[in-house]
């Protein structure tokens, strides 16, 4: 490939890399307030592209930072790649990469772009943009929200700091996980948690059952029924009431109720 011939043609890989580094640093300085972006969909599901559109449109409006999507890779400073890099998109993506002037920044967008995402090991994908072209910035998300997109651009252009860092935790001596809600009988707790999930899904169910546990564990003298009624009156949500009543029924059926 003849991208960046001035660099590749004669120089050794080592100095090539140095020169590329220098060029990219200059580029970043030059494009700080004017970024032309060429979009490559290398086999994404469309959600990323929709979110890129969302970032362009009034609510997020990346044009205020001088970011503009251009129709031809020849105008591009930044190549924004979505998708898991399917086999069929390898050549088009390489052509687009080649077509853009040197140096250029490549951004891998979305889970598929970063690593291949859910498709990472399939027979017809290469598994991420960086398997085919060198990537400078990764924006994870499935899809990344427009705000995440803006953040990613700001990061790539050196305007914001990176928040996510690689972390490695090593189990400390004596690290132990305690059981939550020790006062609630285990069997009842499992039954309530299950019912809550069945009625309201894993997330809202967990929230409801946590609240329910708190109500159960509260010891302010009033009977539990009243506490629940108070709670429901405060929330004023018929559906919540229905679910909580179900939980109450289970409590009433007996503490160790393990029947389904």
């Amino acid at each position: 490939m003849n991208a960046a011939q001035p660099v590749t043609a004669t120089a050794s890989p080592e100095s090539e890399r140095e020169q590329a580094t220098r060029l990219k640093r200059t580029l970043l300085h030059d494009i700080r307030r004017s970024v032309y972006v060429f979009r490559i969909d290398s086999g994404g599901c469309n959600a990323c592209d929709i979110e890129i559109f969302a970032a362009l449109t009034p609510v997020f409006d990346v044009e205020r930072f001088g970011i503009k999507v251009v129709p031809s890779p020849r105008h591009a400073d930044v190549i924004l790649c979505t998708g898991a890099m399917t086999r069929a998109m390898r050549l088009p993506a390489l052509r687009a990469f080649d077509a853009a002037p040197d140096p250029k920044i490549v951004i891998a967008y979305g889970a598929c772009g970063c690593t291949g995402g859910i498709f990472h090991d399939l027979y017809c994908v290469w598994g991420g943009i960086d398997k085919i072209i060198p990537v400078d910035v990764y924006i994870p998300g499935c899809p990344p929200t427009p705000a995440a997109t803006i953040y990613g651009f700001a990061l790539g252009l050196g305007l914001l700091d990176q928040k996510l860092k690689a972390t490695h935790h090593v189990e400390a001596e004596g690290e132990q996980v305690t059981v939550t809600h020790p006062r609630i009988p285990y069997g009842l707790r499992i039954a309530l948690e299950r019912e809550a999930r069945r009625m309201a899904g894993y997330r809202q169910g967990r929230e409801i059952v946590e609240n329910f546990f708190i109500l159960m564990e509260q010891d302010d003298g009033a009977p539990i029924r009243e506490r629940i009624a108070d709670f429901l009156a405060r929330e004023n949500d018929p559906r919540l009431a229905e679910i909580v009543h179900r939980l109450e029924e289970i409590c009433a059926r007996g503490n160790g109720g393990t029947d389904q």
Binding site: M1, A20, P134, V135, D136
Partner: peptide, 19 residues
């Protein structure tokens, strides 16, 4: 056409200078 070559080059540059 020299896409193989192109790909090789791209792979080599995976050590992106920005990192």
């Amino acid at each position: 056409i020299p896409y193989k070559e192109m790909e090789r080059y791209c792979r080599e540059r995976t050590n992106s200078p920005l990192k």
